[in-house]
């Protein structure tokens, strides 16, 4: 088949599946939160209903907004969130555009949906949205550090172990880093696992890191002026970003496939791996988003920076030192 056609078709299929799965994930998330609070909770498909309603509602553009930026940013957010998925392998399915980008590109792409939110917030011309956008920028700067440390530590260790192309997403998925490291490296990876579990809710702006949206003091913060279709698009982009971020964490740190253990081959292996991958994503979302957001209250923005830079940054430095010691003891550097 024509490679361009295949890429376009793959993108469309992936986008539809990711939106559907992301909305189901957020439905499960809301349901589990409700159960943890001794409530019944909304139906699983509630996010679909919400988005359908938002798409049908009136779309207001405030008088002092910049209309083209205000309307463009929700589309940019959704498109860039879907673009991330093109570079991620799902189970044993290779990424759609795998040969064109690596983990560094994904790191950059992960920023763009948040950046679109920030620009949209500034463009809406509301003081609440401006404060929210500034907070979002600060928390972006904050969580980038531990995320970059985790990526670099893992890719460096793979490179030290002599794995070819350690920065390709496919390599990370096919060569679980846990298999190449020694005991000290395992310790370092456990630390990185804790760091990723804290980066994920920050990246997704969930409680306790939702100070940019802060319903109670900023009345919705960045999104305060968005209504109707634009708000629906932002909701979709956040659902897709939840898929992308949890998949990214899995590829970095929990990359095993099921089929080698079951001895499956062919199509059955693909399906088993995909289902296993989706279950892992559900696990990641429940552990690092749902449980955390039920148990904790919102951090102040200064606390967010302190946590990410001092605590997790310090842990990350420790993890890198352990990784180097591990590589040194095993005699690979």
């Amino acid at each position: 088949m024509n490679p361009i056609l295949a890429a376009v078709g793959g993108t469309i299929v992936l986008a539809i599946l990711a939106i559907a799965f992301g909305l189901i994930l957020s439905g499960i998330d809301r349901r589990v939160v409700a159960r943890m609070q001794a409530r019944v909770g909304p139906p699983l498909l509630q996010p679909f209903t919400d988005v359908r309603k938002l798409l049908a509602k009136q779309n207001i553009i405030p008088a002092n907004a910049i209309p083209w930026l205000f309307n463009l940013m929700p589309i940019v957010a959704l498109a860039s969130a879907i673009t991330i998925l093109l570079y991620l392998p799902f189970g044993s399915f290779a990424p759609v555009l795998g040969e064109f980008g690596d983990v560094i590109l994904v790191l950059y792409l992960l920023i763009i949906p948040s950046l679109a939110l920030v620009i949209g917030g500034f463009a809406s011309g509301s003081p609440y949205a401006t404060v929210g956008a500034q907070r979002e920028m600060v928390s972006m700067i904050a969580y980038e550090l531990p995320l970059a440390i985790a990526v670099i530590a893992i890719a460096w260790r793979l490179m030290a172990a002599g794995v070819a192309e350690p920065f390709l997403m496919l390599t990370l998925m096919q060569t679980p880093v846990w298999d190449v490291v020694g005991p000290l490296g395992i310790l370092a990876l456990l630390i990185l696992l804790v760091m990723m579990a804290w980066v994920t809710p920050g990246e997704l702006s969930k409680i306790p890191f939702d100070s940019p949206e802060a319903e109670t003091e900023l009345a919705g913060g960045i999104l305060v002026e968005y209504s109707g279709r634009n708000l629906g698009l932002f909701t979709l982009s956040q659902a897709v970003k939840m898929v992308a971020m949890s998949a990214f964490g899995i590829i970095l740190l929990l990359p095993w496939n099921l089929s080698p253990f079951l001895g499956l081959t062919g199509a059955a292996a693909g399906v088993a791996d995909l289902v296993f991958f989706l279950l892992k994503m559900l696990f990641v979302v429940i552990v690092s988003v749902t449980v955390v957001r039920t148990m904790m209250a919102r951090f102040r923005i200064t606390q967010v920076v302190g946590l990410y830079w001092l605590v997790l940054g310090g842990l990350g430095a420790l993890a890198i030192i352990l990784m180097m010691a591990d590589a040194f003891l095993l005699g690979v550097i």
Partner: peptide, 19 residues
Amino acid sequence: TPRYDPERFGVKLVGSPRH
């Protein structure tokens, strides 16, 4: 409150009149 739990029916309190 959880006793009545209106979120069962999709009812949610929002912070902005735009939503």
